[in-house]
Amino acid sequence: MKLIERFKQGKFVITCEAGPPKGIEMEQMMSELEPLRDKIDAFNVTDLQSSVMRVGSLATCRLLKDRDLEPIMQLTCRDRNRLGLQSDVLSAAVLGIDNLLCLTGDHPTMGDHPQAMPVFDLDSVQLLSAVKGLMGGKDMAGNDLEGRPPQFCLGAVVNPGAEPLEPQIIKMEKKIQAGAEFFQTQAVYEVDKFARFMKKVKHLKVPVMAGIIFLKSPGMAKFMNANVAGIHVPDELINELAGVGKEKRVEKSLEISARLITELKDLCQGVHIMSLGWERHVSTVLEMAKL
């Protein structure tokens, strides 16, 4: 099912990130996602996240589909040129994938194969245009596709915490022009700042899903502040988490996430949860947030 249908139904859409393993045993990943079946609208499968080599998004999406779980296939420009990307888009359609999330992708130097050639033959805007072209029955060279063209719901990303914000918004507008129908954001910890962002993009009239990353520890929060672009965890949240004993930390962390979701709920059209190994806690957080 295309994710855009959920938004059209007026539902507050919830997606959860699913990171394939480094290795071919998929059982653990699948068993962690299974309990979320009735709570999550779609599972967003990463494409070699952080430039770390692992099982691909397409195969994992198909496995989810086989289990009747709705996948969103992430597609980055880092590893394939336009031949590879377009071919994988067709392959995704053949395997029944309805949702694609098109991103630039991290640079290879961020991951475990820093020696790799960075491809970036296309950027995220051009990738969206290319997929839109395939959906219209033409490849990037203008050749006709045989038979019925593929159909997808296209998503993209935006970073509401970027400074300056203006270039991000210009690029977001270009992504919409190129075919993006929904957006998910980098992790949000400052509700006021996010509200200002939403006000600035109100005219674009596309559904936006706020990104949620569980704060597992004060150290993780500080690490993200220093190293992850556009993420800023305010000191109050770090102190709140640091103020409880280690045995209560998980509980506190989930409480913070649930509170953020509750506060963000009226500002946007959905949340995208990047659980980073804490899939088992996703249900609890959603219950705490009354979703």
């Binding site: 420009c77 630039t104 640079h107 130097t109 961020m110 960075p118 970036f120 950027d123 270009k174 672009a229």
Partner: peptide, 29 residues
């Protein structure tokens, strides 16, 4: 731009610096 992007910055720049090298300016900025 470390990724030779033509349509604007990626989401990786921080404080105006490139995700690849914190001493290198983000070209798109």
């Amino acid at each position: 731009c470390a990724k030779s992007l033509l349509n604007g910055p990626c989401g990786g720049a921080q404080d105006g610096k490139c995700e690849v090298d914190s001493e290198k300016d983000c070209g798109w900025q």
